[in-house]
Write a protein that binds this DNA or RNA. Structure first.
Lengths: 157, 157
DNA sequence: GCTGAAATGGCCTCACT
DNA sequence: AGTGAGGCCATTTCAGC
């Protein structure tokens, strides 16, 4: 990543695309005051520059039977690189883990986990935590409501 | 949401689209063993049924100068509906807040926050927490690494 | 260099089989 | 569900600013 000189037009285009990637160039052009061709040229440039990392379909967790979300704070036994890396790999390979952050503070990792039900989550905790001697402690919070699920980054000043 | 009878072909199509929403129907068809038109018919159905909620561009936080991510646990003063709803609205209107979950446990809310820098986060904490008498306590964890940022839901059995 | 207008080409859509 | 005609949209080209 090297060239993030984005003008206001780029920002406006990005705002449209992160709201709806299927917005046609003509519509965007009308909003930002550019021709459709110019919009598409900029989109192509933004893709190649990596400002637009990818374009994805957002699926409904409910429709897929994944109605439960959990926030889990994980504290590791000893913070050496090998242990942390092993846990990273385990997290990356587990489909239940939607997100994982390696953080400062009392916990080492924060996980956002989705499961079909409570039983699924128990199976998850077993394979992820109880079977892992390097996990000292974990704290689970059940998400009663997803107030905000951020896919959009704040744009503009 | 009422009609989640998805067969294996639907699942396979969804897997393609949540990896890359720009995958053309012909390519998907070759993978799953269907004609392009059949794939598009299914995609249309999945969109109308709400299984595909939307299609969005994923932007690079770095490219937009949002290099810092925080996990914040928030504890409210008194858990009455008015206070909680007010906080919800505040969260929804704040661009720094990427995600927010209302959870069980010692904390009431878990926030995922992105800011350009530490100063930006301090400004955020002031307007969101210190200026809010209903916030009893909050704990910040700085994300040193985004190990996994889940946009993909686990598909299949 | 970036823009807008027009021509080309690709993909989606729809009617029909 | 597959096939093919039609239409829409992205892409390229070219001239102008």
């Amino acid at each position: 990543m090297q060239t993030p000189d984005l003008d206001q037009l780029d920002i406006a285009i990005l705002a449209c695309l992160q709201a709806d990637a299927r917005t046609i160039a003509e519509t965007i052009g009308a909003k930002v005051g550019l021709s459709a061709a110019a919009v598409q040229r900029r989109i192509k440039r933004l893709r190649e520059a990596g400002v637009i990392e990818r374009e994805v379909a957002v699926l409904s967790p409910q429709a897929l039977g994944l109605s439960m979300t959990f926030v889990v704070m994980v504290e590791m036994e000893r913070e050496n690189l090998a242990v942390l890396d092993a846990f990273r790999r385990q997290v990356l390979g587990d489909d239940c883990v939607q997100q994982c952050y390696y953080v400062t503070g009392s916990a080492d990792f924060v996980l956002i986990v989705t499961c079909p039900d409570m039983a699924g989550f128990e199976t998850f905790t077993r394979r992820m935590f109880f079977d892992n001697p390097n996990v000292r402690h974990f704290t689970t919070s059940v998400a009663m409501d997803r107030v905000k699920v951020g896919l959009n980054l704040p744009l503009g000043p």
